[in-house]
Amino acid sequence: MIVAVDHVQLAAPPGAEGELRAFYVGVLGMTEVPKPPTLAARGGCWFRAGAVQLHLGVEDNFRGAGKAHPGLRVVGIEAYAELLAARGATVTWDAELPGHRRFYSCDPVGNRLEFLEPVPG
């Protein structure tokens, strides 16, 4: 029986770890999680915010995910969008999901990220 999502893995090109750290820590405000040594040798990096974990793994013939994406629930979406934009991230609002405010952004290697917050009432 599935009870929760443990993490979401996204791909990244070899050598992109510095850019990813700058974005996921410096822009999104996540914390880097050390990878176990046996996995660290493969490259990539892991991040956490509360119970949410995103793993970025190295893929040789990398192509950014343009449609597939994690949906990250946030609190205070307007302020969070302003913070991301002030830190240089793209913020593209979308009003197509009833009962939610949401926007999309992309990490520095082209992975699509969705940020959403339920609308009260």
Rank of each mutant, 00 (worst) to 15 (best):
residue 69 H to L: 08
residue 63 R to K: 13
residue 53 Q to A: 08
residue 63 R to Q: 14
residue 94 D to G: 04
residue 57 G to V: 08
residue 54 L to E: 01
residue 71 G to N: 15
residue 73 R to G: 13
residue 107 D to Q: 11
residue 94 D to P: 01
residue 84 L to E: 00
residue 103 F to C: 02
residue 107 D to N: 13
residue 63 R to Y: 01
residue 96 E to C: 08
residue 95 A to D: 12
residue 94 D to T: 00
residue 104 Y to A: 04
residue 105 S to W: 06
residue 92 T to V: 13
residue 59 E to V: 13
residue 95 A to S: 12
residue 62 F to W: 02
residue 49 A to I: 12
residue 89 A to T: 11
residue 84 L to F: 07
residue 90 T to H: 05
residue 109 V to K: 02
residue 99 G to K: 12
residue 99 G to D: 04
residue 60 D to K: 14
residue 89 A to N: 10
residue 77 I to S: 13
residue 63 R to F: 02
residue 76 G to E: 11
residue 79 A to N: 14
residue 70 P to C: 01
residue 103 F to K: 07
residue 69 H to F: 00
residue 91 V to L: 01
residue 49 A to F: 12
residue 61 N to W: 08
residue 62 F to S: 09
residue 53 Q to I: 14
residue 68 A to V: 03
residue 60 D to Y: 05
residue 56 L to N: 01
residue 102 R to W: 01
residue 63 R to E: 06
residue 70 P to W: 02
residue 106 C to G: 03
residue 101 R to Y: 05
residue 59 E to P: 04
residue 73 R to P: 02
residue 69 H to G: 01
residue 105 S to I: 05
residue 79 A to E: 15
residue 77 I to A: 13
residue 96 E to G: 14
residue 72 L to T: 00
residue 74 V to R: 15
residue 75 V to A: 15
residue 98 P to V: 04
residue 86 A to S: 15
residue 93 W to F: 13
residue 93 W to I: 06
residue 99 G to Q: 11
residue 75 V to S: 15
residue 86 A to V: 06
residue 84 L to R: 09
residue 61 N to I: 01
residue 97 L to T: 09
residue 104 Y to N: 03
residue 80 Y to C: 08
residue 60 D to P: 08
residue 99 G to L: 10
residue 100 H to F: 00
residue 84 L to W: 15
residue 84 L to S: 13
residue 83 L to Q: 15
residue 61 N to F: 07
residue 61 N to S: 13
residue 69 H to N: 01
residue 84 L to N: 09
residue 87 R to L: 07
residue 68 A to C: 00
residue 99 G to E: 04
residue 82 E to S: 10
residue 92 T to A: 11
residue 54 L to A: 03
residue 83 L to C: 10
residue 82 E to V: 06
residue 69 H to Y: 03
residue 96 E to R: 14
residue 65 A to H: 13
residue 87 R to T: 10
residue 65 A to G: 03
residue 72 L to D: 02
residue 94 D to C: 04
residue 101 R to M: 02
residue 88 G to F: 07
residue 94 D to Y: 03
residue 58 V to R: 11
residue 79 A to D: 15
residue 52 V to G: 04
residue 97 L to M: 11
residue 72 L to C: 06
residue 51 A to L: 12
residue 90 T to Y: 07
residue 79 A to M: 10
residue 59 E to N: 11
residue 90 T to N: 11
residue 56 L to R: 06
residue 82 E to N: 08
residue 90 T to A: 01
residue 58 V to H: 10
residue 69 H to Q: 09
residue 88 G to A: 07
residue 83 L to N: 07
residue 80 Y to T: 12
residue 94 D to Q: 01
residue 108 P to H: 07
residue 61 N to G: 05
